[in-house]
Design a protein around this nucleic acid. Structure first.
Length: 877
RNA sequence: GCCCCUGUGGCGGAAUUGGUAGACGCGCCUGACUCAAAAUCAGGUGGCCAAAAGCCGUGCUGGUUCGAGUCCGGCCAGGGGCACCA
């Protein structure tokens, strides 16, 4: 009898070695079978893996192993998002080279990931800091440049004063740098941009086709792209008031229906007209300077009062040349949205209303809400932005808002001034081009050279990669590339005269925008991709990662895929057909009396749910149990995967990660939960041991008939098979876990029952062997090492990692007789056993004969009997 | 302010998408084994009631329906995203 405990610590490395030696997870590009590409977001090599990684990679591994068992050619690669700031910080703090620091971390994390037993094709491993990788990224940059998808322009940029670098709009969260947390400043710099806005419309429209993405992510991207349809209107300026040469002011509006409610115009402080007007107006110039000094950092914007300054310029209303509108410079107008100018309709825009109330400009309501009296309707301090009927608007009166918009657009489109229409329909996007220049060392060098004579000269392809120099110092702030003597100063590739290399490096989000494509042919030395391989593998069938990349990484990758298509590197639009965003791993927090945090490893928790208390294990000092929060170093509520794997094994950690919480929600890491998972590992081991003893007596040939006990086992096995298969397909791992528990319970009960009844017939043994085989294959994607050990115990000389998913016998799922719940007036009162295919009349007759039903009816006929076949019966008394 | 999501036992969560609410796990209780503990095994575990019968029960509230955790209206609470975007 098998009484020994399963020794995960001994078994797990042993099986990992077998898998590796046999190379069974290596995907081949020439394998003719159908393909499946499952990918988890690759990690930043920060030092050690954390529980979030364990959760992420376990989920992907379950899918990969399941698909492999289904006979599919699976690509499941791993790499390193290896460029970035922390390597430079480490260099500054610890005097280690960023490269050494990064590769040390990669080595540690690789071996940690391997100890998880992931079915990864390590032959395709890539690191983005490897010149063999970024060489091709530089090639992509040059191709994009040639294709007009890259632009160099001066612009106001987000400057992170702590990291001393530029940030993209997407990297500014609540006015702060996404990594440093520092308040972001605005600076005017010349930068490289990827023209993501070229695809605004396409990126937006294609969101509708991504039906295997979470709605949440699609909504966030939709909002981020921010499409709005409106009208561009050219307001003529009163020549008597306009600065020299200025004749008109262009504005963009989505509310042209409210044109007769206009009270003022407003332009951004950095609008050219403002500068022109300020030339002769020192007070205005001072106001503009003041606005610019404050900048547009979010923090300031939110608290700043709306302020304006009358330029003295007057604009003429497009429908009434005698109607003059004052033009203000206002601190709340953004130069980089629309035209940097608006017309203000205070009655129907809260911000405009606040403005006029401050400067006493008044308002005219032009949209009357349904049910309101047009003569009485007035606006004081709350603008009305809803639908209604046009009033006070001359030829628009009586129209709906929609009709009025159409009428205004139609009229202004057909009115020509100069040689252009006064109004033009226009679509505007909130999305800005992606600024990729970073003033950092540890990133992919931008492959261009600045020459006094020739201007910007792309580095010739034969000179790629532009490799990072390794002899750099981090003894002062700023970019060491900028002060590197030989690397920076190079001859111009065109004219040969002394020139200067671009010292900015690329945003690290560029690195991760195409790595999924590189995995399809990572050995390719000549080109970023082999389009044949890329097109065959892509799009990624299932991508798994955190919700924090809903906009940044996922939007950039969608852009890159389109740009790579345009430059001939692959031929598809969307990189990720299926996206799954998993929840975080959270844990209780523990605080000592002095307010400092204690780690779970230091704390001993005792007592049941309602009387739980904690003490410091070493001293007995009482500890306050705090709220459950995301595992983080600062809260010290992390659990080290290495410790868990050393104590319980990787299978236990994997199993716990998948149980209980639905994968998209946060999972609470608890010691009890891990122990529960560990107990189940041991229970499965014992169960398979018992099953193996019975299975040994099984005949090779499948018996002709099965006794009820054997049939019950077979039904449980195939029922579990059907449910687990469906739930893996839908990534509902918590339900898979429940089904496997249920099946294991059923098999255990059947084996225990056998002793009493002495039912050791051939057919029973055969059913047990079949059930044990199915059980092991079913749990092997979640607990691969235990599965191999059990598989061997059952006498197989193959690997379960290479076993086929069992064939489902659907006949076993169908019962001949079924038990239907019987409701009386919608409340369950009884059960009735009927033939599965019994006619409704028969079911009704059987139900009416039931004692509880007769009692309820008391001799009267039922009002109604509803029979839902194979579901339920409801008697209405 | 706008948009989205989530509210089910002591806890994590199931519920075939309108058909037996609480699967499965954790925790707890009782028993067996043990000198004892651990492990394991057997049983129990939404509330009210001594128990049965019964009644109540999916954030609150109203509705639709033979039947509502699920659909509709109105609230409340928690979480997330966006936000001078014209």
């Amino acid at each position: 009898m098998m009484t020994e405990r399963y020794n995960a610590r001994e078994a797990e490395p042993r099986w990992q070695k077998v898998w590796e030696e046999r190379g069974i997870f290596v995907a081949r590009n020439d394998d003719p079978r159908p393909r499946y590409y499952v990918l988890e977001m690759f990690p930043y090599p920060s030092g050690r893996i954390h529980m979030g990684h364990v959760r992420n990679y376990t989920m992907g591994d379950v899918v990969a192993r399941y698909k492999r068992a289904m006979g599919v050619n699976v690509l499941h690669p791993m790499g390193w998002d290896a460029f970035g700031m922390p390597a430079e910080n480490a260099a500054m703090e610890r005097k280690v080279h960023p490269k050494a620091w990064t590769y040390d971390n990669i080595a540690t994390m690789r071996s940690q990931l391997k100890s998880m037993g992931l079915s990864i094709d390590w032959s395709r491993e890539i690191a983005t800091c490897d010149p063999a990788y970024y060489k091709h990224q530089q090639k992509l940059f040059l191709d994009f440049l040639k294709a007009g998808l890259v632009e160099r322009k001066a612009s106001k940029v987000n400057w992170d004063p702590v990291d001393q670098t530029v940030l993209a709009n997407e990297q500014v969260i609540d006015g702060r740098g996404w990594r440093s947390g520092a308040l972001v400043e605005q600076r005017e710099l010349t930068q490289w941009f990827f023209k993501i806005t070229k695809y605004s419309e396409a990126l937006l429209a294609a969101l509708d086709t991504l039906d295997r993405w979470p709605d949440k992510v699609r909504t966030m991207q939709r909002n981020w792209i921010g499409r709005s349809e409106g009208l561009l209107i050219r307001f003529a300026l009163d020549p008597a008031t306009a600065p020299n040469g200025e004749t008109e002011l262009k504005i963009f509006t989505t509310r042209h229906d409210t044109l007769f409610g206009a009270r003022f115009m407003a332009i951004a402080p950095d609008h050219p007209l403002a500068a022109a007007a300020a030339a002769k107006n020192p007070a205005l110039a001072a106001f503009i300077a003041e606005c610019k000094r404050h900048g547009t950092a979010q923090e300031i914007v939110e608290t700043a009062e709306k302020q304006g300054f009358d330029t003295g310029i007057r604009a003429l209303h497009p429908f009434d040349p005698d109607w003059r509108l004052p033009v203000y410079v206002a601190n709340f107008i953004l130069m980089d949205y629309g035209t940097g100018a608006i017309f203000g309709c205070p009655a129907h825009d809260q911000r405009d209303l606040d403005f006029v109330n401050k400067y006493g400009l008044g308002n005219t309501p032009v949209v009357c809400p349904p049910g309101a009296d047009p003569k009485q309707f007035a606006i004081t301090d709350t603008a009305y932005d809803g639908d209604g009927t046009m009033i006070n608007s001359r030829f628009l009166d009586g129209m709906t808002v929609e009709q009025a918009k159409e009428e205004v657009a139609r009229r202004l489109e057909s009115e020509i001034r100069g040689n252009a229409p006064v109004g033009m329909r226009q679509v505007n996007f909130r999305l800005r081009d992606w600024g990729i220049s970073r003033q950092r060392y540890w990133g992919c060098p931008i492959p261009v050279i600045h020459c006094e004579a020739c201007g910007i000269v792309p580095v010739p392809e034969k000179d790629l990669p532009v490799a990072l120099p390794e002899d750099v110092e981090f003894d002062r702030p700023g970019n060491p590339l900028d002060r590197h003597p030989t690397w920076r100063n190079v001859p111009c590739p065109q004219c040969g005269r002394p020139a200067r290399r671009e010292t900015d490096t690329m945003d690290t989000f560029v690195d991760s925008s195409w790595y999924f494509a590189r995995f399809t042919d990572p050995w390719n030395a000549n080109a970023p991709t082999d389009p044949k391989a890329a097109n065959a593998w892509l799009p990624v069938d299932q991508y798994i990662g955190g919700i924090e990349h809903a906009i940044l990484h996922l939007l950039y990758s969608r852009f890159f895929t389109r740009a790579m298509r345009e430059t001939g590197h692959l031929d598809l639009d969307e990189p990720f057909a299926g996206l799954f965003t998993q929840g975080m791993v959270v844990h209780e927090t523990y605080r000592r009396a002095d307010g400092s945090y204690a780690s779970p490893a230091e704390v001993k928790v005792e007592g049941a749910e309602d009387s739980r208390r904690a003490v410091l294990a070493s001293t007995g000092e009482p500890i306050e149990i705090g709220p459950i929060e995301k595992m983080s170093k600062s809260k010290r509520n992390t659990v080290d995967p290495d410790d868990i794997i050393a104590t319980y094994g990787a299978d236990t950690a994997r199993w716990f990660m998948l149980s209980d919480s639905p994968p998209e929600r946060d999972v609470i890491w608890t010691e009890e939960g891990v122990q529960g998972a560990w107990r189940f590992v041991q229970r499965l081991w014992r169960l398979v041991g018992e099953a193996a003893a019975v299975a040994r007596e099984a005949p090779d040939a499948r018996p002709q008939t099965f006794t009820p006990a054997a049939l019950a086992i077979r039904k449980a096995a195939h029922g579990a098979l059907a449910k687990v298969s469906e739930d893996i397909e839908k990534l509902r791992f918590n339900r898979c876990v429940a089904h496997i528990y249920e099946f294991a319970n059923a098999l255990q009960a059947a084996l225990a029952g056998r002793g009493d009844k002495n039912e050791a017939a051939d057919d029973f043994a055969w059913a047990v062997r079949e059930a044990a085989d199915i059980l092991i294959v079913l749990f092997h994607p979640m607990m691969p090492h235990l599965a191999e050990e059990c598989w061997a115990l059952l006498g197989h000389d193959t690997l379960v990692a290479e076993a086929s998913w069992p064939a489902l016998e659907r006949d076993l799922l169908v019962e001949d007789t079924i038990v239907l719940p019987v409701q009386i007036n919608g409340r369950k009162r009884a059960d009735v056993t009927v033939a599965r295919n019994a006619a409704n009349m028969e079911v009704e007759a059987a139900v009416l004969a039931l004692e509880p039903v007769r009692r309820a009816l008391a001799g009267k006929p039922p009002k109604k009997v509803i029979v839902v076949p194979q579901r339920i019966v409801n008697v209405v008394a």
